[in-house]
Design a binder for these strands. Structure first.
Lengths: 147, 147
DNA sequence: AACAATTCAATTGCGCGCAATAGAAATTTC
DNA sequence: GAAATTTCTATTGCGCGCAATTGAATTGTT
């Protein structure tokens, strides 16, 4: 029974993505509460744990976010002593974000988070990897459409 | 080359979902501007066009949203004359949402939106449907994990 | 019937997420 | 090298999205 209505909610890919995103946020909430981080803050740490000292711009490019989102987010983390902001000496337009010892130490606790995801998905890493790659292609197609 | 770091951003399914969701929002923005709707407002109309007169609760169940999100959203639509709110006579706790003629008329313009998505994805409806189903399963697994 | 527990919508508070704008710094152009 | 353009961060405004709470209406219990 094919879906004939082009405006049927449950047949729409966009809504499936939207609903899955919220489900992830709900799933992460109690796990990230243990780190006192929101999900976007967690993403920032994922980036910084891999490459400390990035500029706001570079961070935004990685996460597909702009300064309007990142600047206040970082300031909240700075207020809690988890990161440090430092203006670049070579190019004074740029602000670089550095982890403090406390921010670096958070990484240990964070290791539990992907483990919980793996468990929830039944340990099928191959299926998850394929889905991830499909989503990457989807994002590229959507971004390319208006370029 | 297997990904060994469990906290690597680009290998994470959650980030792929997160990034795809934002890409969809960006893609929809100019198309929904033509209807003067935000994406969540568009979702509400998708539901109402299919089943008019739902309660706030039923709407929330469909979209995985709560009254804290839906109530103010609906009030904005009501202020623009696109929907009407009416307290249920049988059960006065409930508020039912009805489309106005103007709200119903929006549907014509909305038909262009899924067409644009189809075009952006290269018309491969089968791949899109499989991805959609995978995301539905993902959402169910995540929701089931804490039940 | 009286009381307790549940359900539903609304509200408050806070953190995204993005458009639009501003202002400073760097780069390009002439 | 002066002027125009671009780049980068920060700010403002607005609409989600959700936790927590409130108050009214309904249902369940005894």
């Amino acid at each position: 029974m094919a879906q004939t209505d082009p405006l049927n909610l449950d047949s729409m890919l966009c809504f499936a993505v939207y609903a899955a995103e919220h489900a992830f946020t709900r799933f992460y909430k109690p796990r990230l509460d243990a780190l006192e981080l929101t999900y976007p803050q967690y993403l920032v740490f994922l980036v910084l744990w891999e490459s400390d000292g990035l500029t706001v711009k570079a961070l935004g490019d990685k996460l597909f976010l702009d300064s309007g989102t990142i600047t206040p987010l970082i300031k909240r983390l700075e207020g809690r002593g988890l990161v440090r902001r430092e203006r670049d000496k070579q190019d004074e337009r740029q602000v670089r974000i550095f982890l403090t010892d406390e921010g670096r130490a958070l990484r240990e606790k964070a290791l539990a988070v992907p483990l919980a995801v793996g468990k929830a998905l039944g340990g099928d890493a191959r299926t998850a990897a394929m889905l991830r790659d499909s989503l990457h292609r989807l994002r590229e197609q959507l971004d390319a459409a208006d370029a």
